[in-house]
Design a protein around this nucleic acid. Structure first.
Length: 483
RNA sequence: CGGGGCGUAGCGCAGCCUGGUAGCGCGUCUGCCUUGGGCGCAGAAGGUCGGAGGUUCGAAUCCUCUCGCCCCGACCA
């Protein structure tokens, strides 16, 4: 059993806490394949719920799913100058196939992202403005040979969805880019209960091959930032490289305007680092595999019999309401052991049911996000149990978001001098002026470890002075240390 | 590729500095006892100390080489 020792404390060593938690909650393991991880059923269950939520939102916005090959002819990658420059160092290349070495130029790369191979198809499929917009999404694995990896946050191979769309006009593509960023915001905030900043990335932080990149940025409990999703306005860069053209309403040939956007299993890491505590995993109800665990308590079979019957009845009622509930009748483990076990695994609501409760026709309910406070046990009449459980889950979803938002807001500051930036480098999100040059951005990163996250849409842009160079600044941007 | 750390029982570790033939916790097995916050007690099994070479009467311990893993950094859509 993996759960006899306590976790390291978040406040003492956040990295260690995170790694131990991921493994002890049986979400994922390191693989023997360097840089890769094994997502275990508990971890994959969270991904499945994420997929379900996201996929529904993509369909609502008119997108359809498709699937393209994992191997991309090397030559495709080379076609877009910035794209190949950005990804070349991270590629895994297939140099032998069918027992024969492939000559240079005829090799394949394992997709690091699919813009190029999808554009090959777009170029064939799209003839006229009547074929537009083309709105595709792909659920897939991709591979990027990163130097340093971290469970869920950055692994050599990862699972994601990548949306790829083609539009008639620049304005349409821009609107799509922003629309999908908004979909990500809603998903992050309403499903993951994770507040995010929506905004534009800087030139040096944008996607290789895009005109503009937008991101959602979240704050983890160690006050570091995590880029949780990106949406790219690709302009006509790939269209030109692959000759993805259409006959316009004006009777002329035009290159399509494109977007791409993606989120990955990194979101699982984000979820953990946003909500979980020293007891283990905390998962928002909308994404939890098990929302309610009912624990049967009793010494003898005579005692347990009626308790089990009541527990089963409650579980049935919960399931009828669409709540993911389970009954734990295992008498080989003590109730106390199970409390800790379910807290580690992130079950949202624990129901304790024993002979004493049954005599009073009640049960005990403990919300996972309040379980460290032992006074927060709720005594609930059995008649109301299902309804109460359901409303407690709803409340928990809201409270998790509010708590995370309050944390982020408490750790967001305006800073007005370079000294102040250096001093507060580890304190969270710093709103600072910047002269807009990559040189200054690079210098700040070098000297303080701070990187630009994005320029949030809702951050009022007022002119000021760059604290580093004293040059004029168009407005503040978010700086933070980041994963 | 730099910097640091670690390889000793299924898992987590101590022992190493100052050499004397291996120990603790958890888990496992047996029995009793327990079950509302990680039950308790008693007993038992389980190891070529990552590998190779060297020093020595004697090496987990000292020296050399080697393999592997982890953390931090550099890198990064």
């Amino acid at each position: 059993m993996a759960s006899t020792d306590k976790l390291p404390l978040r406040s003492q060593d956040f990295s260690e806490w995170y790694i131990q938690l991921v493994q002890r909650a049986q979400l994922a393991d390191y693989s023997d394949v360097k840089g890769c991880m094994v997502i275990r059923p508990n971890g994959y269950a969270i991904w499945e719920h994420m997929q379900r939520g996201l996929d529904a939102m993509f369909k609502d916005t008119g997108h359809v799913n498709a699937y393209f090959p994992m191997l991309i002819p090397e030559e495709y990658l080379q076609r877009e100058k910035e794209h190949v420059k950005g990804f070349n160092p991270q590629l895994a290349v297939v140099a032998i196939a069918g027992g024969k070495p492939l000559p240079e130029g005829e090799r394949y790369v394992v997709r690091p992202t699919s813009e190029t191979i999808i554009n090959r198809s777009f170029a064939k499929w799209i003839q006229s403005y009547r074929d537009l917009p083309m709105l595709l999404n792909q659920w897939a694995n991709v591979m990027r040979w990163e130097m340093r990896t971290r469970l869920f946050l950055r692994t050599t191979e990862f699972l994601w969805q990548e949306g790829h769309t083609c539009h008639e006009t620049e304005a349409d593509a821009e609107a799509e880019t922003r629309k999908m960023l908004e979909v990500y915001r809603v998903f992050a905030e309403e499903w993951m209960a994770m507040p995010v900043l929506c905004g534009q990335k800087t030139e040096s932080e944008k996607f290789a091959g895009a005109d503009r990149t937008y991101s959602i940025e979240a704050m983890m409990q160690d006050k570091k930032a995590l880029q949780a999703g990106t949406s790219h306005m690709l302009g006509q860069n790939f269209a030109k490289a692959f000759e993805t053209r259409f006959l316009g309403r004006d009777g002329q040939q035009h290159f399509v305007w494109q977007t791409s956007w993606g989120v990955s299993t990194r979101l699982i890491g984000a979820l953990i680092m946003t909500h979980s505590d020293d007891q283990g995993l905390v998962v928002p109800p909308k994404l939890a595999a098990t929302q309610v665990a009912i624990i049967v308590i009793g010494k003898t079979p005579e005692e347990r019999g009626p308790v089990k019957a009541a527990a089963d009845a409650l579980a049935k009622e919960l399931k009828a309401r669409g709540v993911r509930a389970m009954v734990d009748d295992d008498d080989s483990k003590s109730p106390g052991f199970k409390y800790n076990e379910y807290e580690l695994k992130g079950v949202c609501l624990r129901v304790e049911l024993g002979p004493k409760d049954l005599a009073k026709q009640q049960c005990v309910m403990v919300r996972r996000d309040q379980s460290s406070d032992r006074s927060k046990k709720a005594f609930v009449a059995m008649a109301d149990a299902a309804k109460t459980a359901e409303s407690m889950l709803e409340q928990m979803q809201k409270d998790l978001f509010q708590k995370a938002k309050a944390f982020r807001d408490e750790h967001t500051f305006e800073v007005n001098s370079y000294e102040e930036m250096k001093k507060r480098a580890d304190d969270g999100f710093l709103l600072a002026h910047w002269d807009g040059t990559p040189e200054t951005e690079a210098r700040i990163k070098e000297e303080t470890g701070l990187t630009t996250r994005n320029r949030p849409f809702d951050l009022k842009q007022e002119p000021g002075t760059c604290p580093v160079t004293g040059k004029p600044s168009a407005g503040r941007i978010v700086f933070s240390k980041a994963y």
